[in-house]
């Protein structure tokens, strides 16, 4: 039986959390500006990104645990309520590749949450305010049109685009056709500009760090990484997307979209050789279950390879990463010949 009173309280609590989170996000967002970001040290960068992530996704622990429950049992790693994501900063202190990997992962998350919230605010606005020709209903129900409107708002509210008056006029003319004039823009302007600027800054950070980490990995030669082309379904359509995948030592397999043709070309010869076991993820952490910890501490590559041979491929791959195995060692776990120097 549904307890309407509880679920209503829950929804109200979530709404209050979101309002509170948004105030904090707006306070933090100027620091995400690339000029500020570039002068921070790696710990400060991570601190900022993790704080913004937590404010966007205050229920990240519950969400993460629910997602883990969908995985096979031995691979699941739950997180306790009191977990502090910022402990990661100490874990990776002095390890530049690990720091960059976390910066890429969490800046990507921050950008995407900014984008979801922008769409959410737009949807709420269209539902709340009526327009005589019912154009707002048409926009909500037409995903392509919704995308066009959303994109026009993105360009109008980008702080770095304000002097591009010709382009802004172009987008305002588009919006006017659908009943969004100056009055409506003033209302939308209370929430959307911060999100647009965060998206822009977080994506710049992600893209810059991606280029850096690829250079570091090419020099380091120890980690397994590369590109894969992955088919995704969005709005009922199949699309091919390029993913950068990295086995982040002690953490897990990380994958993010890449758009840069140059990076795609650079990585094109360097294909990631394993399946992407979990495309969707909420967190990248260095936690293990007691069982995983026992196996990893035994440091027995043959034992881990046996799990792979017995069909527990994802489990074996996860153990190898959590154990900090090199690319050659992970290859051996997957049935390769050379077990490296472990």
């Amino acid at each position: 039986m549904i307890n309407y009173s509880d679920s209503r309280l829950d929804a109200e609590r979530k709404k209050e959390d979101k309002i509170r989170g948004f105030k904090e996000i707006k306070k933090l967002s100027p620091n995400l500006d690339l000029e500020n970001y570039l002068i921070m040290d790696e710990s400060e960068k991570l601190d900022l990104l993790l704080e913004m992530f937590k404010q966007f996704k205050s229920d990240y622990i519950d969400n993460y645990n629910k997602m883990e429950e969908k995985k096979s049992e031995r691979v699941q790693i739950s997180i306790p309520r009191g977990y502090d994501l910022k402990d990661l900063i100490k874990s990776v202190d002095g390890e530049i590749i690990l720091q960059k990997a976390l910066e890429i992962y969490y800046s990507n998350k921050v950008a995407h949450y900014a984008e979801y919230w922008q769409k959410d605010f737009l949807r709420q606005f269209l539902k709340k305010y009526q327009n005589p020709e019912n154009l707002f209903d048409i926009i909500i129900n037409d995903s392509r049109l919704f995308g066009i409107i959303n994109n026009s708002l993105f360009r109008i509210f980008d702080e770095y685009n304000q002097d591009n008056t010709r382009e802004i006029k172009y987008h305002k003319d588009i919006l006017k056709r659908y009943g969004i004039g100056e009055r409506e823009l003033r209302i939308l302007g209370k929430s959307i500009p911060s999100l647009v600027n965060i998206y822009r800054d977080a994506m710049c950070i992600k893209d810059a760090e991606l280029h850096e980490i690829v250079s570091l990995l090419e020099e380091d030669k120890l980690s397994s990484y590369g590109m894969i082309t992955h088919t995704e379904v969005e709005s009922g359509k199949e699309k091919e997307r390029n993913l950068f995948v990295l086995d982040v030592p002690f953490f897990g397999q990380m994958s993010v979209h890449i758009k840069s043709p140059e990076l795609i070309s650079q990585l094109g010869k360097h294909k990631y050789p394993y399946p992407v076991y979990q495309r969707e993820s909420i967190l990248l952490t260095d936690r293990l279950t007691p069982e995983q910890e026992r196996i990893v501490k035994r440091n027995d590559i043959e034992e881990i390879r046996k799990y792979f041979e017995e069909g527990e491929e994802e489990f074996a791959h996860l153990l190898a990463i959590k154990g900090g195995y090199t690319a050659d060692e992970i290859k051996y776990v997957h049935g390769g010949d050379n077990k490296g120097e472990r």
Partner: peptide
């Protein structure tokens, strides 16, 4: 700043039609 704005634009359309 302009090129950061363009990078944001590129990302916003990436993966979409």
């Amino acid at each position: 700043k302009k090129m950061q704005s363009v990078n944001g634009m590129y990302n916003f359309v990436s993966g979409k039609e």
